[in-house]
């Protein structure tokens, strides 16, 4: 049975929730990679993914049965990221250093894994992965998303055009320009590594 058929058959709410959960778990890793490559750090990626999943959960009834679930989620996450990116660009965050931070009574303390200060983890992380991430961060969000979806997530141009809601020609030019920008940033590193190995 295809996903579309499953969605069409799962009428009761409990079935819909169970189906949603199973589909999320199926694409868990791919979604996390996408969010991480977009944001560039784990904290932002987790926040983006949480909000994206929440939006998807709320509007799961509107999920079109003919479309793929992962692409639908990529679209939601991409739109959220673009909105957030534009807002952040318009209003840079200002924090007062004089006023103490006010804590709400209802505030909960959540333990979050520290990804930045763990030297072992830092050492274990791939150097190439870091280099790629730095390169991706240099690209504008539109180019970055197109390159990530094509080269890391392995989507076709048609699928990317559905996610980004643009023409295949636009996708093609974004990927091409994105790769050329990445070449400028990554090629010296790749050549250096190749020379060292060879």
């Amino acid at each position: 049975m295809t996903v579309a058929q499953s969605v069409a058959r799962a009428k009761p709410i409990s079935d819909q929730i169970a189906l949603f959960e199973s589909m999320v778990l199926t694409h868990e890793k791919a979604l996390y990679q996408f969010a991480y490559r977009l944001c560039g750090n784990h904290h932002e990626a987790q926040d983006l993914l949480q909000e994206g999943l929440y939006r998807a959960y709320k509007s799961f009834a509107k999920f079109e049965t003919g479309t793929a679930f992962d692409r639908w989620l990529y679209q939601i996450i991409h739109n959220l990221y673009i909105d957030h990116y534009r807002k952040r660009k318009r209003r840079p965050s200002v924090t007062s250093i004089d006023e103490p931070i006010q804590h709400l009574e209802t505030e909960k303390t959540v333990e979050i894994a520290d990804w930045t200060l763990n030297p072992e983890n830092q050492a274990m992380r791939s150097e190439l992965g870091d280099q790629i991430q730095r390169g991706l961060e240099e690209l504008s969000p539109e180019y970055r998303t197109a390159v990530i979806l094509c080269d890391i997530q392995g989507l076709s141009y048609e699928e990317i055009s559905q996610v980004l809601n643009c023409s295949i020609g636009t996708v093609r030019s974004r990927i091409h320009r994105g790769r050329k920008m990445l070449r400028r940033l990554l090629l010296p590193y790749i050549q250096e590594k190749g020379a060292a190995q060879g």
């Binding site: 778990l25 996390y32 990679q33 993914l49 929440y54 190439l128 790629i132 790749i190």
Partner: peptide, 29 residues
């Protein structure tokens, strides 16, 4: 050159997923 960039991105290591998506979703709800 562009082929090597594509290969480089394809072979980039996958970031470890230490995050429970469903738990985060229900916490948000």
């Amino acid at each position: 050159q562009l082929m090597s960039i594509k290969n480089c991105l394809e072979n980039s290591c996958q970031e470890p997923v230490d995050f429970n998506l469903l738990e985060a979703l229900y916490a948000r709800i």
